Simulated assay, not measured.
Amino acid sequence: MPHPLMALVLSMTSTLGAAPSSELSVRYEQPGSPRAEQARKLLKDSDALETGIRLPAPIKVVARDCDSAEATWDQDERRITICYQLVDQARRVLDGISETEETDAGTESARMEATLSVLFHQQLGHALTTLNGLPDSDAQADQFAALTLPADAPKRVVPAAEARHLLAGHSGIDELSATAESATFSCLLYGADPAKYHRIAQGGWVAPERAPSCADEYNRVRSAIGSMAVKAGT
């Protein structure tokens, strides 16, 4: 049975193959370079830009070439933009880490797919924040992401915590580079189900002294905003 703290966001079984929300449209624009094409393929093959979360209004998701490496939420346009340049930057950093660690291909692929899911769910968090009339902030978006990511892609939760921990402190990936925010995000993911996601604590992506309080941290977030981050049809 699901951990009781996940009851609100996991009242329906979720898989990576679940149908996306009917309120979400996704468009992949034509890439302008081989590296951008690789980024487009990574995004599309990963299914990272999909969600079964109930949305308060229709949202467009656009993957495209940009002048800078970023992901953004435009409230006026109700549009999430994921830039191929950001995907490419994250890929190159993770490739470098994998080469240093001599990581196997499966682990490297899981980290990359999880990173793409985190990038999307952060922007989905900004969308849910503003569309529900809450003050927008990166911290608030992360809190939503800690609810929606396990609901949409539970198998990516542990590699998401690992990837964000590895990317923290690296320049060029502003959405994932903050060390303190990475630790809080990992704590919330771990707190969603400490038994299921025990590898987050074992990996050291949450400080040992903080780990026992993560379930309470997650529960406070769930109590505050969980009703705005539920699966469609619940």
Rank of each mutant, 00 (worst) to 15 (best):
Q143K: 14
F144L: 10
A146G: 02
A146M: 05
L147F: 02
L147T: 09
L147V: 03
T148M: 02
T148D: 04
L149S: 06
P150A: 00
P150M: 02
A151Y: 06
D152C: 14
D152K: 15
D152Q: 11
A153C: 10
P154I: 06
P154K: 01
P154S: 12
K155A: 15
K155H: 13
V157Y: 00
V157D: 03
V158P: 07
P159M: 03
A160R: 09
A160K: 08
A160I: 13
A161H: 06
A161E: 13
E162L: 15
A163I: 11
H165A: 13
L166Q: 13
A168F: 08
A168E: 13
H170N: 14
S171P: 08
G172V: 06
G172P: 08
I173W: 07
I173K: 10
I173E: 13
D174Q: 13
E175H: 15
E175T: 13
E175W: 03
E175V: 11
S177W: 08
S177D: 11
S177E: 14
A178Y: 12
A178H: 14
A180P: 04
A180C: 07
A180R: 09
A180H: 12
E181T: 04
E181Y: 02
E181H: 06
E181K: 04
A183M: 08
A183R: 12
T184M: 11
T184G: 04
S186I: 05
C187I: 04
L188W: 11
L188C: 02
L189W: 08
L189G: 04
Y190K: 00
Y190D: 00
Y190T: 00
G191Q: 00
A192M: 11
A192Q: 14
D193C: 06
A195D: 13
A195P: 10
A195L: 14
K196N: 07
K196D: 08
Y197T: 11
Y197W: 10
Y197N: 12
H198F: 06
H198A: 02
H198P: 01
R199H: 12
I200D: 09
A201N: 12
A201E: 11
Q202Y: 13
Q202S: 10
Q202D: 14
G203N: 11
G203P: 01
G203S: 05
G204W: 07
W205S: 00
W205G: 00
P208Y: 01
E209G: 05
R210Q: 12
A211E: 04
P212M: 03
P212V: 12
P212K: 07
